[in-house]
Design a protein around this nucleic acid. Structure first.
Lengths: 214, 214
DNA sequence: CAACAATGTCACCAGTGGTGACATTGCGTC
DNA sequence: GACGCAATGTCACCACTGGTGACATTGTTG
């Protein structure tokens, strides 16, 4: 009943004549990340990502259970990236200058947020993992947190920090960095460009680190 | 073509036979707030709020331009509430114990967030007012911020705080409180119930206030 | 009481997340 | 190399959402 001409018209939608995409999962993730960056996190649409890749939106469901599942992976990759950036930014500093390193850590955290606001919001906006789905997302988060915990631990060992619980002091730092990032993204912190924002961070967070010193 | 029986069947949708509601604006706001509290902020639906009030969803648009406009008012009322709570919680403390009062302020802020997580997310999640719409929302925010600024100002005048810029130190406090609230809402801060969370706040924020002291 | 503005209703739109039936393809097996 | 199965896409469809314009019903004001 259907002639060949009817069966093969949609070919041009996809770049190649390939019915199968090759690595759709990766392509969708990249498209999603790009869209989120451009259009904002809440405006993101699974269908638009599929469109961008040139694929029916239903195809996406072969690789992700859910829209949430897709976003969870995007978030996960964000945490991996932020951990990398933290490592990079701490790399040059000697292991003994813990305060400096913590400052660098906070700066990396905030820097990532300012450079990738929408991505950051996906990571820490909706509580994607509130029900314990997406354990690998959880791991990615913990990977980043570990950097912080290790640093504080060493600070204590070196006698540079107060004699308080490691976890508490770490939370103090995270709290400050995260609060700063959130408020900055909300436009609540007045600064010119993101460079000045990074500079201003030091002004705001300095007292916190000072308060943690021995 | 349409008989009378066809024209008047939907009466039972609304509780009274009243075609006009009386104070639909208020009713929708209350319904919205309730729904947000129960179902969560992102699951909130304009149509469901209308349904709850027993009105066609289009009627809502007579009172609110937009879904965003509705949410903006919800957020605004949240900021009024949070300011009230801050005032209440600072009320008992003498004006000279600035540190104590700042602690109370932070505690009120975090307390509100923990008691009304979804509402809090509407207030500080999506940047509702990024384009300067909703000036009254802006005012409500400033109303709350003023409490903080005033307190810091007095602290400086009394010589209890560092000799840094008022706005900077205020941002330090807000940053800490907001970061704590956000992370707590994300389940990133381990605590049993919200009572313990409030107690733990002190552990985390104490170094910050210490750092601000003269 | 007539006319007008305010407030609701209705029917409709495009777009979204999601699903089940079906088509196409790649690949291991005989 | 043909066969058949699992993986991967497509298609048609669902209920639902935010939003709009035409129309109905009211309250109010002259």
């Amino acid at each position: 009943m259907t002639e060949k001409t009817e069966k093969t018209p949609a070919r041009r939608a996809k770049p190649r004549g390939t019915y199968h995409h090759g690595d759709l999962r990766r392509a969708v993730l990249d498209a999603a990340t790009a869209l989120i960056r451009e259009r904002g996190s809440e405006a993101f649409t699974l269908r638009e990502a599929a469109r961008l890749v040139g694929v029916d939106h239903a195809a996406v469901y072969r690789h992700f259970e859910d829209k949430r599942a897709l976003l969870a992976v995007v978030a996960e990759e964000g945490f991996v990236a932020i951990a990398g950036r933290i490592r990079d930014e701490m790399a040059g500093l000697p292991e003994t200058s813990v305060l400096e390193r913590l400052k660098a850590l906070a700066s990396a955290y905030v820097g990532f947020a300012l450079d990738n606001p929408a991505h950051f919001r996906v990571m820490l906006g909706p509580r994607l993992n509130e029900d314990g789905r997406f354990p690998s997302l959880e791991s990615a988060i913990e990977g980043a947190v570990t950097l912080l915990l290790d640093e504080v631990r060493r600070g204590r060992r070196l006698g540079l920090l107060r004699d308080a619980r490691t976890r508490d002091m770490a939370m103090t730092v995270w709290t400050a960095a995260h609060g700063y990032a959130s408020l900055a993204l909300l436009g609540r912190i007045k600064h010119g460009d993101s460079v000045r924002a990074a500079a201003y961070l030091e002004v705001v967070v300095a007292p916190v680190l000072a308060g943690l010193q021995r």
